[in-house]
């Protein structure tokens, strides 16, 4: 993945989470991964198109998703209903959009697809051919892993 793409995603994730969740948000060590990986329970995915191809995946467990959705809505949510799903989708959208805006300022043209959300147990993402950058974020509401795979259109 191009070096120029890394920072916008890291910054956007940090800024947005700090803004909507408040409190202590910390970023873990970045690393690369290319094997299939388990999804913790809730995964929001945003596709990227344009000069590049790829996707951004936001991965968290159910408890974190509920806690984050509760914090963003200002009410106590305990079941995985449409509101929770819509909230997580929105979070994914906000982060990706802000990253893409930053990238646009740097002169890179990206288009977004509408986000989609997956929930379930024992899910796994396997596209072995794609190397993804993992940005682990530690929030007061649980862990969110952002999995960015972008490839230059050759």
């Amino acid at each position: 993945m191009r070096v120029e793409y890394i920072n916008p995603f890291v910054e956007a994730a940090f800024n947005v989470m700090k803004e909507v969740l408040g409190g202590d948000v910390r970023r873990g060590e970045l690393y690369l991964k290319s094997t299939s990986m388990p999804v913790m329970g809730v995964a929001a995915i945003v596709g990227l198109a344009g000069g590049v191809e790829g996707r951004v995946l936001f991965d968290m467990d159910k408890a974190s998703a509920l806690s984050i959705a509760s914090a963003m809505n200002g009410e106590d949510l305990t079941v995985m209903d449409d509101l929770v799903k819509a909230t997580i989708t929105e979070l994914a959208n906000m982060i990706t959009a802000q990253a893409v805006t930053k990238l646009h300022e740097l002169g890179f043209q990206f288009d977004l697809t509408p986000p989609a959300i997956f929930t379930g147990d024992n899910m796994e993402v396997s596209n072995q051919d794609v190397e993804a950058l993992i940005v682990p974020m530690e929030t007061g509401h649980g862990k969110v892993e952002i999995n960015v795979a972008i490839r230059e259109r050759a």
């Binding site: 890394i6 690369l32 290319s34 051919d129 794609v130 190397e131 950058l133 490839r151 230059e152 050759a154």
Partner: peptide, 12 residues
């Protein structure tokens, strides 16, 4: 293009 990439993964 400077890329953060591990050559032991698939090389695109």
């Amino acid at each position: 293009f400077f890329e953060f990439h591990d050559v032991l993964n698939t090389n695109p």
